[in-house]
C-alpha cells in the first residue's frame, strides 16, 4: 500500500515535471520564431542574430535547470 502510494507519487511528480519542461520548451520555440521572423533577425547582422540565439539557449537552459532543481 505504502509502496503503491510512493510509486504513484513518483509518477505524478515525474509527469508534472515533464509537462512543466514541455511547456517551457514550447515557449522558447515561440520566442525564437518571434525573434527570427517578426523581428527579422533571420536576416540581421550575424552578431545580433547570435546574441539573440544565445539568449534563447542560455535563458531556456537556466530556467529548465532551476525548475528541475525546485520540483
Amino acid at each position: 500500500m505504502v509502496w503503491l502510494v510512493l510509486v504513484t507519487a513518483t509518477l505524478v511528480s515525474w509527469s508534472l515535471r515533464a509537462i512543466g519542461l514541455a511547456v517551457l520548451a514550447v515557449a522558447f520555440v515561440k520566442v525564437r520564431l518571434v525573434g527570427l521572423y517578426f523581428m527579422e533577425l533571420r536576416t540581421a547582422p550575424v552578431p545580433l542574430r547570435l546574441a539573440f540565439e544565445a539568449w534563447v539557449v542560455v535563458v531556456g537552459a537556466v530556467l529548465a535547470g532551476l525548475y528541475l532543481l525546485g520540483v
Binding site: 520566442v31 523581428m39 525548475y67
Partner: peptide, 19 residues
C-alpha cells in the same frame, strides 16, 4: 513591440502554466 510580445510568451507559461 515584438519584444513586449516575446516577454509575455515566457511570462505567461511561467506564471500560469508551469506548476
Amino acid at each position: 513591440w515584438h519584444m513586449v510580445d516575446l516577454l509575455w510568451i515566457v511570462l505567461f507559461p511561467l506564471l500560469y502554466l508551469v506548476r
